[in-house]
């Protein structure tokens, strides 16, 4: 005599576990989505480049001699924003050139702003003293300004025209002649805003 196959209602016995399984699926989907978002945002962040046109991001620089300079208050002047660091070799190559250009343009509606990226005050001061730099310089507190300008290294220089638009951007050490030409182009763009 053969034994009859036993029927077993699997579905009815497993029914209570269904809700927890569903909840876990939702949670897993949520995690996958957030991981995808992290990856996507990271990728987007990597692909973001320095602004080369449009309005220059606004900031207020606390200079090493205690002044506060707001970019917005400099409308009507051409602004040369130079990101540098005392530990950066190429920055040393351009330091004297920048100071020479500043001496040439400081009375011609042009202002230079030096922003020390991830630098300590002691080292930044020593650097400025070493190269005899006289234009306003300040530390990039919490690296907020460099994040706004999405710099990828130092030195990087932005020329902002009288209307507050980014006129030019250079990510190599500058020579005085090159910088002068850029400033002249920005000056030629217009007089008052």
């Amino acid at each position: 005599m053969t034994e009859l196959p036993m029927t077993h209602d699997v579905l009815t016995e497993r029914a209570p576990a269904k809700r927890s399984v569903n909840f876990i699926t939702v949670l897993a989907a949520l995690i996958l989505a957030s991981m995808a978002l992290i990856f996507g945002l990271g990728l987007r962040h990597q692909q973001q480049t320095q602004p080369t046109e449009g309005m220059a991001p606004l900031f207020t620089l606390q200079t090493l001699d205690g002044q506060e300079i707001a970019l917005e208050a400099l409308r009507g002047q051409v602004v040369v924003i130079n990101f540098w660091a005392s530990w950066c070799g190429p920055c040393r190559d351009e330091a004297a050139e920048l100071e020479a250009a500043w001496q040439q343009y400081k009375d011609k509606d042009v202002i230079f702003l030096g922003i020390a990226y991830t630098d300590t005050e002691r080292n930044a001061q020593a650097y400025l003293k070493e190269f005899g730099i006289t234009y306003p310089n300040g530390l990039d507190y919490k690296t907020k300004i460099s994040a706004q300008y999405r710099i990828t290294g130092v030195p990087e220089t932005f020329i902002v025209d009288r209307q507050g638009h980014i006129s030019e951007f250079v990510m190599t050490p500058l020579k005085r002649v090159q910088l002068s030409a850029m400033i002249e182009r920005a000056l030629a763009k217009g007089t008052q805003p």
């Binding site: 876990i24 949670l27 897993a28 957030s34 992290i38 945002l41 919490k142």
Partner: peptide, 29 residues
């Protein structure tokens, strides 16, 4: 002085929030 990035936290606020939440979600899962 130098921001959260010195301790390895992402600078992007959304990315930072997600990077903080995801491990907890993963643990919960």
């Amino acid at each position: 002085r130098f921001g959260d990035r010195v301790v390895g936290t992402p600078a992007d606020p959304t990315l930072r929030a997600l990077a903080l939440i995801t491990p907890w979600l993963l643990s919960a899962l």
